[in-house]
Structures are given as structure tokens and as C-alpha cells.
Design a protein around this nucleic acid. Structure first.
Lengths: 191, 191
DNA sequence: GTTTATACCGGATACAGTGTTCGATAACTA
DNA sequence: TAGTTATCGAACACTGTATCCGGTATAAAC
């Protein structure tokens, strides 16, 4: 790829990230992105058809990055066994916190449709790979939806409280709230 | 109130409801509302400042109507005891189904911010008036948020499946999913 | 270093939607 | 009947999107 293209793309991404962290996605205009990235109007449209496509591309990149590590062993956090949903969710929370300056939480909180549907999709896959216990008479897809939306809400709550709570505590709360066993013991006072 | 005003307001509401049931709220334009209601452009703006204010007014009216009955005795459904969250939620589901041609479910599904925040607000109040059991070490506001979003998701699921499931079954599933006791027994096969 | 390709620029333009203004007309009220 | 008020609709200003196109700068190929 041409160096100029790389440079332009990078400038657009950076400007976009900055703007999204400053104001709601819906209020970010193409004109602002162009201004911030310091590029010509037509140049933007040679890279992306619309603002939504830019977000779309960004989501793909973000989620590939974030979820790539969740199912693999990670040195900084603890090892995982297959079926350990709680561990994987905690792991995911670490990645969400450490990446993209919390714009994930922001986009979720805004209920931005593109981002939210990507996240829900990936979450659903993660949960299905590590299936929790579900009462027999309950529709399986409903249970899955409830797990997904409850976890999304957990992340939103976390973000709204400045990402202060410990990811493992959060994952444990989430699991127990959904009637699942949790191996983690939440300490009353942080030490 | 002038008969002309009443007539205009009614026409706007009707056109708006129709349009929202036909397409996503975001894609409904003021021009379309005016067209459908068969009124002049400036007339619309003499009644509502923006499209969002129209939705806002409509939400107030809808929720006052829907939630008014939920906390009172209702002849068509079963009697309620204080603290019977499951009963009240089932009751709420009946009202949601029987009112406004399912546009409530539609707006929720779209994640329309104004409508959703109204609904969540009312739901939170309902839940706080009939508090469920929450593990001691869990942040109370997080638990409340999880209850709210899980119930919203339940309604969305219900709507997406054509409102076919029985409200009491739905409420029971919801309660048990959140680790709450449920008095209702879901019948495997409808009779 | 010259050639060739192509990415970028930016002004012009078409378009869709919002919200306001205002004088004329029709409908209501006292 | 006289006075008030709602409605109408065309015109206008404004914001934002997306495209077009000739001119310029930069990178890659030889």
C-alpha cells in the first residue's frame, strides 16, 4: 500500500478516535473528521463511502484485536480452562479497559448500533463456546440474549463508574447475578 | 382547547404512529409526518419544536397510560400482592402487548434513546418498589441496571418472536434467570 | 533521472432534511 | 357580527452529505 494512503488512513482513524472520545458519535460530522485529520474532502470519500463505514472498519479492527487474546493464554492475567466463562469475561474486561482509551465503553453507553451489534455478536460467540447452565424449559436463544445484554450493561455500568471496579469482581458479580457458580471471591475492602 | 388544535394534534399523532410502525424512527422525517397528517409545515412546528419533542410527548402519554394500571388491581389479570415483582412484570407485558400495536417493542428493539430511557426509568421505579433479592457484596445500582436491561431484552426478544410467548411464562423465565424465586409453573405444551 | 501511475487537493455542485418567517385565509368564540 | 386564533403554504436560511473534476504533488518503476 502506498505510503500516502497509509498516512491518510492513519490520520483519519486518529481524528475519528479523538472526536468520538470528545462527543457522541452521532454528533461527529465528516467535515470535522476532515478538519482534524487535515485532509481534503474528496480524499476522505476515496477511503470510506460514509461515516458509518469508517466506524464499521474500525470495529472490525478493534474486535479482532480485543477478542484475539481472550480465547488464548495471556501472561499478564491468569491461565484459562475451556468452559471457564467467568475467566474469559474477566479477561475481556481487562482488554476493554486497556485498549482505545475507553471509547468502547463510550460507544456502548451511547447505544451506537454498529458498535453494539458487533460487540453483541462477539459476546454471543464467546458465551456459546463456554455455555453456562440454563434451566431446561427456557428458550435457549432468550437465555443467550439475556446473558449478552446483561454483560453489555455490566460494561456500561463499569464505564459510567470510571472503570474503577476490578474486572474479576465484575465478572463474578455478573455470573452470580445470572445464577451461575463463581469461583472468585470478592474482597470487601481492596488491599 | 380549540377543536382545530385537537384535530391537528390527533392527525400528527396518528401519522407519527403509522410511520414509526412502518419504518425505523430515525428514518421518519418531519416532511413525511406533515404529508401523512395532511397539514401545513408551519402548523407542525407550532405544535412541536422538533421530531424528538413529538416522540417525547408521545412517550409521556404512553407510559402514563401503561404504567398506571400495573400497580393497581386489574380485573382481566390476576390480583397482585405488594412485593410481587413477577406478577407486576407479567401485568406490564400484557399492557405492552395490548397497546399501541407493538410500537413499544419496535422502538425498544431499535434502541431509540428517548423511548428506551423513559422505559428504563419506569422499570427501575417498578423494580425498586418490589425489590428482588440481591447478594450482599454486589453494588446495588449495578444489580438494578442488570434487572432493567435484562427485562428490556426480554421484551425485545418477545417482540422479535411476534409476541407469541405467554406473558406469565416470560416473567417467570426472567425471574429465574436472575436467580429469583418464581411461583409460576411454565407448562411444556400450551393447552 | 525520467517516466508513469495514482493519491491528494479543493472548489463547485446537487441533494435531503431542518427550522423560521410572514401574509393570506379559514375557523372558532364571545 | 366582530375579533381572535389556528392553519396554510411558499420562500428562505442553514447544516450536513456525497459526487465530480481538473490541477498538483508524490511515490514507484524503469
Amino acid at each position: 500500500m502506498d505510503r500516502r494512503q497509509r498516512k491518510t488512513r492513519k490520520a483519519i482513524y486518529q481524528a475519528f478516535e479523538d472526536l468520538v472520545s470528545e462527543k457522541p458519535y452521532a454528533q461527529v460530522t465528516v467535515a470535522q473528521i476532515i478538519d482534524r485529520a487535515d485532509i481534503g474532502r474528496s480524499t476522505f470519500y476515496e477511503h470510506f463511502e460514509t461515516k458509518d463505514e469508517l466506524l464499521n472498519d474500525m470495529c472490525t479492527e478493534m474486535f479482532d484485536h480485543i477478542f484475539a487474546g481472550v480465547n488464548s493464554h495471556c501472561v499478564t492475567h491468569r491461565a484459562l480452562q475451556t468452559g471457564d466463562l467467568e475467566g474469559r469475561l474477566a479477561h475481556l474486561l481487562y482488554h476493554l479497559r486497556d485498549t482505545y482509551d475507553g471509547i468502547c465503553g463510550k460507544l456502548l453507553k451511547e447505544g451506537e448500533p454498529v458498535f453494539t451489534s458487533y460487540f453483541r455478536q462477539r459476546l454471543a460467540e464467546l458465551i456459546e463456546e463456554n455455555p453456562p447452565h440454563i434451566p431446561g424449559d427456557m428458550p435457549h436463544d432468550l437465555a443467550l440474549d439475556l446473558f449478552v445484554s446483561a454483560f453489555v450493561e455490566t460494561v456500561v455500568w463499569w464505564f459510567s463508574h470510571g472503570l474503577k471496579a476490578d474486572p474479576q469482581d465484575l465478572a463474578s458479580w455478573f455470573m452470580r447475578m445470572l445464577g451461575q457458580p463463581s469461583s472468585h471471591v470478592v474482597k470487601a475492602i481492596a488491599e
